[in-house]
Design a protein around this nucleic acid. Structure first.
Lengths: 141, 141
DNA sequence: GCAGACCGTCAGCATTGCTGACGATCAGCG
DNA sequence: CGCTGATCGTCAGCAATGCTGACGGTCTGC
């Protein structure tokens, strides 16, 4: 029963994350975006206006990575870059109308993917799971 | 309180996994291996003798990836490849004495890294956390 | 003994994420 | 005002990871 290998948190976390990202990817595929891009849309919508770097910080990705992410979304017409009026080093990033629509649909699809992901987990454990994860992530900085 | 962005499982899982892999990496650094290599050592020790492909399957990595992992461990003198007597297509992979020593040390270091990782999580929740992760990973095939 | 499947290996490619550098801009200070 | 240092977005380059497709060698079933 006790499999010393499979019980390693590293193994479990890695494969859990892989599985969720696959579920999320296929759930969002109809809307032409992936999970990363959806997270960026959500981060932009969450608190506007904000610079690329603020979005990057909130998502925990590098600022150089955010350039490419915004590039992709801008190419799809979902977000818009504009020079920030108060600081011309910055770009203000905002959702377009199409971006709002896509975010709404993708958020719903994302929730469905999470449901699928948690299908085998008892309802009573799900909040605990989220809470533990949040504790861990918060404790890391 | 309810941060719609930060509560996404994708975000939480990704960053939790990142944090654990960092903790694990620095915990094992004194023994000259990383978390991936330690997992391979554990998988080999777990059930010997076995072929590279069996190890790969048990760890959920590709067989072509396992070639490189075994290469690294063999170069460090921790494992040994030998042609399988019953099927000469296969390599039997086994730990050397140094491999056993390293695995013992690294397993201890890994457990300490997990303790650090779970430092903020109440003792009563830790078993639940592992159980939920196992449920999720098992449900995915 | 022959066709098909399997094993380990390797080259090549895509993805992801980082470092380091650059020009443009801002803030502080004299 | 000018100067210095820091910040922002951008880009090139590098490293790690993981996959596909192909190959020779080997086994299995017939």
């Amino acid at each position: 029963m006790a499999n010393p290998l499979i019980d390693r948190l590293g193994y479990l976390l890695k494969h859990a994350q892989l599985r969720l990202s696959e579920l999320t990817a296929s759930a969002m595929e109809p809307y032409g975006i992936n999970g990363r891009q959806c997270a960026v849309l959500a981060a932009i919508d969450d608190r506007v206006p904000q610079s690329q770097q603020e979005v990057a910080r909130r998502l925990g990705v590098d600022r150089t990575t955010m350039v490419g992410l915004i590039d992709e979304l801008e190419e799809k017409g979902l977000v818009q870059r504009r020079p920030a009026p108060d600081d011309r080093r910055k770009n203000v990033v905002a959702l377009t109308d199409a971006g709002h629509d896509t975010l709404r649909n993708a958020t719903k699809a994302s929730a469905e993917a999470e449901q699928l992901f948690l299908a085998g987990v008892p309802e009573s454990d799900r909040a605990t799971f989220r809470r533990i994860l949040r504790t861990i992530v918060d404790s890391g900085g």
